[in-house]
């Protein structure tokens, strides 16, 4: 009868009947777009090799995810179109030296997607940032190739074998100088200008802080990243390194240098802000970011590696459930202005 009254079979669902335009795919592809300046700068400095490294990491990540979804999860659909595997691949590529052997990169992608992401159930379920897990795995498995840095911009665009010439990273130089004092390496250290604009040794994504910040600001403008989170990460890093510098400027380099050098920018704008592996409330995210920054500073100053960004974020990822339990958003009707009622 009701069919006769309406004339057709209508859809029934609970309200709301409106949906925001923002989808997971839109978020992920926006991140891909935000990584484009870094990609271009990487190619500018490391030539065709950087492009191939990026494409390999992205391709391997996408293929691994697709295979797992289709043949391990036995689903008819695939999840690679949401772009999250592309993001993971790009971040992995920007966290390795441009001269990395491609097969090692593929192994890293398999670990990143297969172990760190899909083994936990796919997007949203991974406790650790997949790209960083992949990088950490590569760093312990292929320590030499992972720390052989080609000199940026020193070779032609089409040069394939970058590993012939190697350069130390700024942070590596600082670390090496150690107790001997910074004066020993002072003439080798790149200027702040090069750090900001590019042209320094390191991973592909570490080449230019400016490119990373541009992408980050795009995400802030889109509303996918709260601006305060990356700033707090950098502030945490600056605080620790700043205290050390204030105590002994002869041994430790100043905090601005720490913030601009290495993967700090990439970590602050693209990895601390990773939605899945950071806490849910804004206060939680802020404390999370600041703590990770402090940790990164401590690792850089006192740890065995010159770089501490990846490990600082991975360690904090493990603490996310604790953050979620303790940092809750402010509930309406429980505050002081609500008359203290429970």
């Amino acid at each position: 009868m009701s069919t006769q009254a309406t004339g057709r079979s209508l859809v029934v669902a609970l309200p709301p009947h409106e949906r925001s335009e923002v989808s997971v795919a839109r978020i992920m592809w926006s991140v891909v777009l935000a990584l484009m300046p870094t990609t271009l700068v990487g190619i500018w400095f490391y030539g065709i090799r950087a492009a191939v490294v990026t494409l390999t990491a992205v391709g391997a990540s996408v293929v691994v995810e697709h295979v797992i979804v289709r043949y391990f999860f036995r689903r008819d659909t695939t999840t690679v179109t949401d772009g999250s595997a592309v993001v993971t691949g790009m971040l992995l590529a920007y966290n390795v030296p441009a001269g990395i052997p491609l097969w090692q990169l593929v192994v890293g992608a398999v670990v990143a997607i297969g172990v760190a992401k899909m083994a936990f159930g796919g997007i949203g379920n991974n406790p650790f940032n997949p790209a960083l897990v992949g990088r950490a795995f590569m760093l312990v498995s292929f320590p030499v190739d992972m720390t052989t840095w080609p000199v940026p911009g020193s070779q032609g665009f089409a040069t394939w074998n970058l590993d012939a010439v190697t350069a130390a990273t700024p942070l590596g130089l600082v670390k090496e100088a150690g107790a001997g004092g910074l004066s020993a390496v002072a003439d080798q250290l790149p200027s702040y200008g090069s750090l900001f604009l590019g042209n320094i040794g390191g991973c592909i994504g570490e080449a230019s802080a400016l490119a990373v910040v541009l992408g980050g600001l795009y995400l802030v403008w889109k509303g996918f990243v709260p601006w305060v989170v990356p700033l707090l990460y950098l502030a945490g890093l600056g605080l620790v390194t700043g205290i050390a510098w204030a105590i002994d400027p002869g041994t430790y380099i100043d905090p601005l240098y720490h913030i601009l050098a290495g993967g700090a920018m990439l970590g602050a704008w693209f990895m601390v802000t990773d939605m899945t592996t950071s806490p849910m409330s804004l206060t939680g995210r802020m404390v999370f970011a600041a703590s990770a920054g402090l940790l990164a500073g401590i690792i850089r100053l006192f740890g065995g590696y010159p770089e501490g960004v990846s490990y600082s974020i991975l360690i904090m990822n493990a603490l996310v459930p604790v953050f979620d339990r303790h940092f809750k958003p402010r509930k309406f009707g429980y505050g002081a202005s609500a008359g203290g009622a429970a």
Binding site: S2, S9, L10, V11, V12, A13, L14
Partner: peptide, 16 residues
């Protein structure tokens, strides 16, 4: 006569 568009759960559908 209609087509339900929600989680596959009788409890939710009953409330719908």
């Amino acid at each position: 006569k209609a087509s339900y568009d929600g989680p596959r759960s009788c409890a939710v559908a009953h409330g719908t």
